[in-house]
Every structure is written in C-alpha cells, then in structure tokens.
Amino acid sequence: MANQPLLQIKNLTTSFRIQDEYYPAVDNVSLNVNENEVLAIVGESGCGKSALALSIMRLHNELNTKLEGEVNFKGQNLLSLSTAEMNKYRGKEMGMIFQDPLTALNPLMRIGQQIEEAMRNHLDLSDAEMKARSLELLKKVGIPNPERTYMQFPHELSGGMRQRVVIAIAISCEPKFLIADEPTTALDVTIQAQILDLMLELQEQMKTGIILITHDLGVVAEMADRVAVMYAGQIVEIADVYTLFRNPLHPYTRSLFNSIPSAAEGSDRLHVIQGIVPSLKNLPRTGCRFSNRIPWIKESAHESNPTLHEVEKDHWVRCTCYQDFHFPGDAEAEKI
C-alpha cells in the first residue's frame, strides 16, 4: 500500500442552492482511496453518494453548488483548480463510468469518435494511432468486432455493449483513478456479472483506484476492498469488506443487511427500514440522523453530536447508538 493515498477527501461538504439557501447534500465527508483499491460507497437513493462522486469530478453546476473542504488527488487539491486546470485531470488522471450507458453516449457520434475524445484532449497522437488504440481498447473491453463497432452509432449497440464502450472511454487515457457511478444498475443480471468481471480484470491490470457507487450489496461483496456506508450525506460506517459483512455495527448498515431477501432462512417477512430518507431541506442538523427511523431506540443511546468512532482497527462507526441497537422483534429476546 502506498504511503500517500491516491485520493484523499477531507471534510468535503457539497451544498446545493434551493431558493437562495444552501443545503448540504454531502456533509463533512472524509475518505481515502489508495492505489489499486476498490472503495465501495453504499447507501439508499438520495443519501448523497452520487453527489459525492460528482463533487470529486467537479461536475456540479458551479452556479448553484458550493463545495467546501479538500479533494486531494496525488497531493493536489482539485477544488482549488480552475476549470481549465481541472480539465487536465479529467479523463487523463481520473475517469468516470456512468450509470446509464444509453445517455452517457452522444447519440450522434460514432463510437470511435467518442473513444478518441479523451485522447484528443490529452494525448498527442496522430489519427491513425488514435484509431489503433481505440480498436485495442474495444478489444480489451471484450467487444467482438472492434472494426465494425468503431464505425457504429450508440443506438446500434446493446446495453451491455454500450456499457463496455463507456468503460473503454473511461480508461482510454489509462487514468489512475476511476469513479463508477452505479455501473451495472441499468443492465440485466447476466450482463451485470460480465461487466463486473471486466471491471475487476481491468482494475487488476492497471492498478487503478476505484470508487464504486452502488446500492447493491452483492456487487459490493464481489468488487470492493473497503466499504463506506452513507446515510443522509454522512458516512455512518467505514470498514474493509470482510469486517463489514461479518460484523456490521451501525444500525443503518445492519438494517440494510437485514433487508436483503434470503432464500435460506424461512423468514416470512422482509425487514423494512421504517420511514424515508428526510429530504435535503428537512434534514436534522443535530443529533443522530438515523434516530427517527429507529424510534424504538431510546434518545439517550444517541450522541448529541455524533462522530465517527474507531471500534476496531480501520473500522469506524458514527454515533454510539450501535451499542444499544436491536431490531424490534428481537427486543424480548435481548431482555431475557
């Protein structure tokens, strides 16, 4: 493991403007991603995982978003760069794989042109060299007939093929760092497995640091080295993947695991987390943000200003409520 992390996020807060007031969608998040490491970020819809990813790439509309904190990439704070300087990093040093491959490709440009876009921006190659490299990339991501695909338009490809192309575009300049924002959500299950295998294979080859954003714990188990669980804009638990799956601590993490349908046990009802994620405007700014979704846990169990606690080495949990947490059905069992 390198002594300096590849990407170091320090107290990142992303606030969106809603009617002239800023509301933080990502609240004081600190993260490290090392080289050759896959960090998965899980959480339900609207918990700020995509907002975090877009903040790292600085893709938010700067007119109504405020970014605070630091995003250090190889020691350089990306948030202090001008757009032109940022463009030197985008594509060359860091790439992004999008959720929906249909919309992530320009419908009017041939696949070849789109793969060459990043090379055109960053590398000084001739047209022939770019074409050769594009074909090589297409072959690398498992496209059976690169020559033909090179000349095709996005609508002529299937969903899985498109996502392969999107991956090819993201890795075209061999970036050291990739963000994959729910790369398999728009695909069907068999294709998902193929795409994940492909990503793992490429990751091993190129030693990339990856932030993988997903809400699929199965994907996390397969891909990730470390996992960060996000809730309501904050990281509530972060640990390496084995620890987290073996010993999830935060009530939210435990609820998530409990919500996975399982074929093995004969449980007749699936666990449902009560309530909904509070909207950005109504988010409680003090206290444990998860408290109103586990109302059976008494107030005193929560910290008034929850911080991350290191329960064991590299396993951090927010708030103290994890110590007293139990599921409603288990209450009697625990009392005896």
Partner: peptide
C-alpha cells in the same frame, strides 16, 4: 449524461456546446 461524460474526459465547455449539444 453524455454531456457530463464528456466533461469527465476533460473536454472544455465550448467544445461540448458546439460539437456535442449543437448537433
């Protein structure tokens, strides 16, 4: 998303406007 995707490749805004959005 192709606009955002293009941004992640380091393409400047004016190029995205003229060569991606306009067509």
């Amino acid at each position: 998303e192709y606009v955002a995707a293009s941004k992640t490749l380091g393409t400047p805004d004016w190029k995205i406007m003229l060569f991606q959005v306009l067509p």
